[in-house]
Design a protein around this nucleic acid. Structure first.
Length: 554
RNA sequence: GCGCCUGUAGCUCAGGGGAUAGAGCGCCGGCCUCCGGAGCCGGGUGCACAGGUUCGAUUCCUGUCAGGCGCACCA
């Protein structure tokens, strides 16, 4: 509808220019929006107010000319008014919103799908936490955000790959190995201390205990490298398995688990480095190899290969992103914690240096999570091993509440996670409000079945019987769903969907409290049944995009 | 010091060059002989501060102040 009006306005400008009512003008970036006030119509545009300079005419006069040239073909248009400083307000036949109802009912799980992506390939990489420990609240937010963004893009017509980058190489793995060894010694009665830069999580002790259970203490006297490698191999497999399981329990499934080590093994890292060299973007200095990041607007150059010959994490990450582009993604999205923001310009610079379009790499920076429990801030630190894990989170508050909570805020917000609130199974917890709306509708249909009646066929229902304020307001928002999906996809903003679905639930509740669905009036009942069925479809589809279930009973 | 993010209602957060700035929670009143009261209806205070651009700024720009996060041959 909105698009239709926009096109009509563009035609009106063209028509006006051709007819001589307006001098030739360049089309400004105008908007067609739903006015805050109902009296201002169903839609309004600021178009006329953007043209006075070019046209050398008063905005209200321009609006008049535009209206004279508005195509007659616009559907449902009842009347148009010029208001205020030059707004053009469109008033529609209220029945136009009812078109969405049978559409949603027919399309079911496909209602809301749009073709924005046109089948192009996008990769969303998220979480990618070090496999040296458990997932914490920050990772949980990344998981909820990344998975929802991926789902929304899929729904918006992209071909989506969800990917997890496993940092199974480099320094932190060596520190991990040394930590494992220390615990190994300790458990077997030998003096040892977790080294500087090591990991203090209790889970690591458990891992080593399991290793000993399965393999005994035979490595005590083994060659050190052999011992470290054996411990790391065992622990990595276990940790990665645990991470996969936690994420699966959180409703997140990946298409690809990509190993950093594989980039070293396959020579990709070396290849990326030599490509940068060939293109003249790398130089040696003080025994190390540097990337000329400064040439790409970055403050400082960056080390690719250390003096000791070992490539940095940055070098491996360049190789990883090079690989992403080689795999043919039209768009590469990374969800990163805000603490990595300094890495963004470097990475984009490196892609440009390799000859890729840096604009195809989009990094969503997610602000950190502050956890509150019992009214107090809980400090989280992986190093000291003090944090709430994703596993505990799901156990404590449940998957649905946790996911809804994370996705309710924009990535930019410094999210404050109130454990006590999320845990509450009461009306204070917003997730139940939405789920309850869905369960309520399902209950209506159970009621219907008990009476031996059934859902009418959309074609045989007279929707024009829906004339109540609450009915039309609800239908109206249902009609917006495809556009909400489009906006959420464009902005990579799941919180838009979270707020939208909450609003739809609110409209359903309001309607439900004032009107009965199942009555003796068969015609009206059928119309309302169709309306609530369409609502059920939207609630379920929207919740699905957020990874939240739509229960039939609560 | 430099860079990024954020300052909107008591609290947690949306919004956004336009016509009267929203939601949830909390607080105070109402509403079930009726499809689920985890619901509905009503009640109110707010765009950190100072300049600038604009017909119009809470929104864009600059500066100030405050909070968070970065600024490694760590990842």
């Amino acid at each position: 509808m909105r698009e239709g009006l926009k096109h009509a306005l563009v035609d009106a400008v063209k028509g006006a220019v051709e007819a001589g009512g307006l001098p030739p003008v360049e089309l400004p970036g105008f908007v067609v929006e739903v006015p805050r006030e109902r009296e201002h119509g169903d839609f309004a545009t600021n178009l006329a107010m953007l043209l006075p300079k070019q046209a050398r005419m008063a905005p209200r006069k321009i609006a008049e000319v535009l209206l004279e040239n508005l195509p007659r073909s616009v559907r449902w248009l009842e009347r148009v008014e010029i208001a205020g400083p030059g707004f053009i307000n469109f008033y529609l036949d209220p029945r136009w919103v009812l078109e969405a109802v049978p559409l949603a009912v027919r399309q079911r799980s496909d209602y809301g799908r749009v073709r924005l992506g046109r089948g192009r390939k996008v990769q969303v990489e998220f979480v990618s936490a070090n496999p040296t420990g458990l997932l914490h609240m920050g990772n949980a937010r990344g998981a909820a955000l990344g998975d929802s963004i991926a789902s929304i893009l899929d729904f918006a017509g992209w071909q989506v790959t969800r990917e997890y980058y496993i940092n199974d190489a480099g320094n932190q793995i060596e520190n991990f190995a040394l930590t494992l060894e220390a615990r190994y010694f300790q458990l077997l009665g030998r003096e040892a201390e977790v080294p500087e830069g090591g990991y203090h999580g209790k889970d690591i002790i458990d891992t080593v205990r399991r290793f000993i259970d399965q393999h005994g203490g035979g490595l005590l006297e083994a060659d050190r490298r052999t011992r470290l490698d054996a411990l790391v191999k065992f622990a990595l497999a276990e940790k990665i398995g645990a991470i996969k399981q936690s994420l699966a329990d959180f409703g997140v499934r990946y298409d690809v688990w990509f190993s950093e080590q594989s980039l070293h093994d396959s020579g990709k890292v070396a290849e990326a480095i030599s490509r940068l060299r060939e293109r003249g973007h790398a130089y040696e200095h003080e025994g190390a190899l540097w990337f000329k990041a400064g040439a790409f607007g970055v403050e400082k150059d960056e080390v690719l290969v250390r003096k000791n010959g070992v490539p940095t994490y940055f070098a491996a990450d360049i190789a990883y992103h090079m690989d992403k582009f080689e795999r043919g993604f039209d768009w590469v999205i990374n969800i990163w914690g805000a603490d990595h923001h300094g890495h963004v310009p470097r990475m984009k610079g490196a892609m440009e240096a390799l000859g890729y379009d840096p604009d195809k790499l989009h990094v969503v920076l997610m602000q950190l999570v502050r956890l509150f429990q019992g009214g107090e801030l809980v400090r989280m630190s992986k190093r000291t091993g003090q944090f709430v894990t994703l596993e505990e989170l799901v156990e404590e508050v449940g998957r649905d509440a946790a996911r809804y909570f994370f996705v309710l805020r924009s990535a930019d917000s410094h999210l404050e996670f109130d454990m006590d609130l999320a845990r509450k199974q009461s009306n204070e917890n917003p997730v139940y409000y939405v789920q309850y709306a869905h369960a309520r509708i399902c209950s209506i249909f159970r009621q219907l079945a008990e009476q031996g009646r059934q859902l009418p066929d959309p074609g045989g229902v007279n929707l024009e019987l829906l004339q109540e304020e609450a009915e039309l307001a609800l239908a109206r928002r249902l009609a917006d769903f495809p556009e909400e999906v489009t906006l959420a996809a464009r902005q990579l903003a799941p919180h838009r969907i979270a707020r939208y679905v909450h609003e739809v639930a609110g409209l359903l509740h309001s309607f439900y409290n004032v009107h009965r669905v199942i009555t003796d009036d068969l015609e009206l009942s059928n119309a309302r049944l169709l309306l609530v069925d369409a609502t059920r479809v939207v609630l379920r589809n929207a919740l699905g995009l957020l990874g939240v279930s739509a229960p039939e009973k609560m």
